[in-house]
């Protein structure tokens, strides 16, 4: 029982990061129908920024906002350089464009930094500090991740529900052409979606990098895959589904890892993927079905 509770908390902590990543993927998918395989690159670029700053003696207090800012800027630059040129293109083109962005970004780091792992110091409290709640030992890091994620999701919800920008974003996701007829600027709403997506990835990136303590040119693959898969199992196009999908993915990983015998614990990810494949056979539209109307 205690072990299960402990696992649930671990899973929530991990799932929080995935939820933020998935939400960013879903926001962009909503306005552009683009499944962004380059989403993880925001963390790669932020990771190198963090590496540079920390090895130059900056404190984590400054590096945290730096990571977020770099992620937002990178997201906007990628939109400007690549995605703005393929707006309205076929799914095939959009998917391969984002795949191409992923490769160009990682290749640039390969070219100008190196293929090797760059390590940087992690804040002490992320590794050792815990607090107890009855019989439970809860990591301070997990606590911070969960609290910050909840606050971020709350703020994002307020942004989407209460502001004109949020309203425009939701309208554009539902019917892009009609939103433009109402005066919603396509540039504003798409760039806004990329900025929001970058912001969410930046917050997720802070935790991701604090936990990893290193970066490589291909560091973005893992967060990208988690974000994209979580968005997909939540139901493509649904923001609520994306968050749900993120938490579900985090919990599934942690629970599987604790249940699997040690000899095959290394295959956890493989089992998670297999579970996802099964989910798609039985519920192909994901948790939250979104209607994709087709005019005949």
């Amino acid at each position: 029982m205690v072990e299960l509770a402990q696992n649930l908390i671990d899973g929530l902590g991990r799932g929080s990061i995935y939820a933020l990543l998935a939400l960013g993927v879903a926001v962009v998918f909503g306005v552009m129908h683009l499944l962004n395989f380059a989403h993880g690159e925001l963390i790669t670029v932020s990771g190198y920024a963090a590496f540079w700053a920390l090895t130059n003696g900056w404190s984590w207090w400054i590096v945290v906002p730096l990571i977020v800012v770099v992620a937002v800027l990178t997201s906007l630059v990628i939109e400007r350089v690549a995605f703005s040129r393929v707006r309205g293109a076929s799914d095939f083109t959009l998917l391969l464009t984002s795949f191409g962005v992923h490769f160009v970004v990682s290749a640039i780091f390969l070219l100008y930094v190196s293929a090797s792992v760059k390590n940087f110091p992690r804040p002490a409290w992320t590794t050792s500090s815990t607090w107890s709640l009855g019989p439970l030992q809860i990591e301070t890091f997990d606590t911070v991740v969960i609290v910050v994620t909840m606050l971020t999701l709350l703020a994002t919800n307020l942004l989407l529900q209460r502001t004109m920008f949020g309203l425009a974003l939701r309208a554009a996701a539902a019917d892009f052409d009609t939103a433009r007829l109402m005066g919603v600027r396509s540039d504003t709403v798409i760039r806004g979606a990329f900025a929001l997506s970058g912001l969410l990835a930046g917050i997720a990136g802070v935790f991701w990098l604090m936990r990893a303590g290193s970066t490589t040119p291909s560091a973005g693959i893992d967060p990208m895959l988690k974000g994209v898969l979580a968005a997909l199992i939540g139901g493509l196009g649904s923001l609520r589904g994306a968050v749900l999908g993120g938490f579900a993915l985090g919990l599934a990983e942690v629970l599987l890892r604790s249940w699997l015998p040690g000899s095959i614990a290394g295959l956890t990810e493989g089992f998670v993927f297999a579970l996802i494949a099964l989910l798609f056979i039985f519920r192909p539209q994901g948790f939250v079905a979104v209607a994709h109307a087709e005019r005949v």
Partner: peptide
Amino acid sequence: LQTVFLGVAML
């Protein structure tokens, strides 16, 4: 350089 080349070609 060839990896950059591949990525740029795809894009």
